Computed example of a mutant assay.
Amino acid sequence: MNRHQPTLVVALGGNALLRRGQPLDAEIQRSNIAMAAATLATLSQEWRLVLVHGNGPQVGLLALQNSACHDVPPYPLDILGAESQGMIGYMLIQALKNRLPDTEVTAVLTQVEIDPNDPAFQAPTKFIGPVYTAPQVAALPVGNGWVMKADGQYLRRVVPSPRPQRIIEAQAITTLTAHDHLVICSGGGGIPVAAIHGEMRGIEAVIDKDLSASLLARQINADALLILTDADAVYADWGKPTQEALRQTTPRGLASMHFDSGSMGPKIQAACEFVNTTGGMVGIGALADGVAILHGTKGTRITRD
């Protein structure tokens, strides 16, 4: 990297690191992360990268493992989110350094301030952990307090997902980026914290990583935002015979369309907020197509009206 490169925030989905239906296995994650590192290494030739990653499958696994121990009370989701930042950050650093041995790669444990009165606490929507069949859900320990919702043909745990208000470590991230570090931060959308009685406290929630990446991109004055997911593009009329991939669109063009709140909806919201605020460009598409998305030959590009 060099100081003349534009800055790109990349939001890498947790399901891109551990694909839907794959076992929650460390070696499978290492293999997927190695493939992600290949795309990121190519992007780093043109951009100064700041990487935000999801943690839905991983933090859910930690919660599941945590619930199996009856000797201590279960750890709250903010602590499990911090654990997942370290776990995924470590694997990303190792894979990226193997691809880019001359690049400084740094993971920043990142807190994100939220509103403790956010209405999201009354309506959990964020999927975490593995998928279950109905008989598997029936066999889960009674009284675990989990809320389950349909995720495709399966059931999956959902938790509150409050809106991110401020990336607390934004200045540290800016400083590292200015010194040519490839920065990994806001993992899982960041560790949710709130000011309570004059002190920052962890909050039981998981922040949407795309909304967090968009906020981060605005706070650090990034030039573009790239959202990589398990869909190859944004589609109009998704799931209908008339579905069509949108290759080039604008926030105004997207405003009249409906996108599911559990999948593409937050990505569209994050993209439009970044474009409308900064005038920068957002790309959305598959991990393997990262470079082509930014060049406009694959995926979806969203630009100002």
Results as ranks from 00 to 15, higher is better:
Gln248His: 15
Met264Gln: 03
Pro251Trp: 05
Lys267Asn: 10
Leu228Phe: 05
Ala245Tyr: 06
Met257Phe: 11
Gly265Pro: 10
Asp260Gln: 13
Ser263Arg: 12
Gln248Asn: 12
Tyr235Lys: 06
Asp260Ser: 14
Pro266Cys: 06
Ser263Tyr: 10
Asp232Gln: 12
Lys240Ala: 04
Ile227Lys: 02
Val234Glu: 08
Glu244Asp: 06
Asp260Ala: 15
Gly239Ser: 12
Ser261Trp: 06
Tyr235Leu: 09
Ala245Met: 09
Pro241Gln: 09
Leu228Val: 14
Asp230Tyr: 03
Asp230Ser: 12
Arg247Asp: 07
Tyr235Met: 07
Val234Thr: 11
Ala255Ser: 15
Thr249Val: 14
Gly253Ile: 14
Gly262Asp: 10
Glu244Val: 14
Met257Gly: 10
Pro241Phe: 05
Thr242Ile: 08
Arg252Glu: 13
Arg252Asp: 11
Ala255His: 15
Gln243Leu: 01
Asp230Phe: 04
Gln243Met: 10
Asp260Gly: 13
Ser256Trp: 02
Gln248Tyr: 13
Pro251Thr: 09
Leu246Val: 08
Ala233Gln: 06
Ile227Gln: 03
Leu254Ala: 03
Ile227Phe: 00
Ile227Ala: 04
Leu246Glu: 05
Pro266Ile: 07
Ala245Phe: 09
Arg247Pro: 02
Tyr235Thr: 04
Ile227Met: 13
Arg252Ala: 11
Ala255Gln: 15
His258Gly: 11
Pro266Trp: 02
Ser261Leu: 12
Thr229Phe: 08
Asp237Asn: 15
Leu246Cys: 06
Asp237Val: 00
Ser261Pro: 05
Pro241His: 08
Ile268Pro: 05
Ser256Asn: 14
His258Ile: 07
Ala231Gly: 02
Ser256Cys: 08
Trp238Ser: 01
Ala255Asn: 13
Gln248Thr: 14
Met257Arg: 15
Thr242Asn: 10
Tyr235Arg: 08
Ile268His: 01
Thr250Trp: 07
Leu254Cys: 02
Ala245Cys: 10
Phe259Ser: 09
Arg247Ala: 12
Leu254Met: 01
Asp232Phe: 03
Thr229Val: 15
Ile268Phe: 01
Leu228Ala: 07
Asp260Pro: 02
Gln243Phe: 00
Ile227Trp: 05
Ala231Tyr: 00
Asp237Met: 08
Thr250Leu: 08
Thr242Cys: 06
Ser263Gln: 11
Tyr235Gly: 01
Gly239Thr: 05
Ser256Thr: 13
Ser263Val: 08
Leu228Asn: 03
Arg247Gln: 12
Ile227Gly: 06
Gln243Tyr: 00
Lys240Leu: 02
Thr242Pro: 05
Ala245His: 11
Ala231Leu: 03
Glu244Tyr: 10
Pro251Ser: 04
Ser256Val: 11
Leu254Val: 06
Thr249Arg: 11
Val234Cys: 07
Ser261Asp: 13
Val234Arg: 05
Leu228Tyr: 05
Asp237Leu: 09
Gln243Pro: 03
Ile227Ser: 05
Gly253Gln: 13
Ile268Ala: 04
Ile227Pro: 10
Ala255Trp: 07
Lys240Cys: 00
Gly253Thr: 12
Gly253Trp: 05
